[in-house]
Amino acid sequence: MTTLLNVQHVSKQYGHDTLALSDVSFSVNEGEFVSVIGPSGAGKSTLLRCINQMVDTTDGEIHFDNAILQQMNKRELRGLRTNIGMIFQHYNLVERLTVIENVLHGRLGYKSTVAGMLGLYKEEEKERGIELLEMLGLREQIYKRCDQLSGGQKQRVGIARALIQEPKMLLCDEPIASLDPNASKRIMDHLKSISRSMGITALVNLHQVDVALSYSDRIIGVSGGKIVFDGSPKEVTQEIIQSIYGSEANDLMVKLGGQNAI
């Protein structure tokens, strides 16, 4: 398998003394489904945003698809970002616009400034958007305004917007943190099947350890801006959970014990 993403000794410092990430290194293969777990404030979101350079790194290098992000100029960076789709906890859709308009926003990076401003999309792009919405079960909602959708539906629109970019990689920042268990399962199933069937690499930040364990090919545990675990879900033990979340994670360990028993 070829390596798609290679993060080498990356550090990120906010201000003078807040170190969000310190000397983080890992690599992700093409088509892999990787979950990043860790307590709030551990640096998961920062890590994700360093990969598409929404946050610039203080130190280290990130290689994506044989290019080094730190050497790119603004224009090249825009090009890079079209190759990386992003999904957010709060969906981040333009609420007043329709579902299909929001989906097509994913194509803006490929367009000239004027064509993008005026919303001049090609017929193929529109057809692709509708195809994706049908795949995600949103056929009925194509012309609905996004503020009329439920949380789970909004997140599926978010996924469609990311997929229409034809990305090599999906970055998902807490995709199910604001959803109920049913919607969460549906979203995770979609992400997993997308990753499988389209061969898209996924890097997912998660709060739910049990979800991460059951869906991922690999788990990366982050704590205090450092990677404390990097391995397959089978290797995750109670001691490891404790090293990621600290000694107060007793409830989580109980849950983990129960799941392992099954």
Binding site: N52, M86, L93, V94, H105, G106, L108, G109, T113
Partner: peptide, 20 residues
């Protein structure tokens, strides 16, 4: 977040302004 989402997909400043 809306601005962030479009910036992350490679949209330019004017596109973000007019579209979002």
């Amino acid at each position: 977040g809306v601005i962030e989402a479009l910036r992350a997909s490679g949209a330019s400043w004017w596109q973000i302004v007019v579209q979002a």
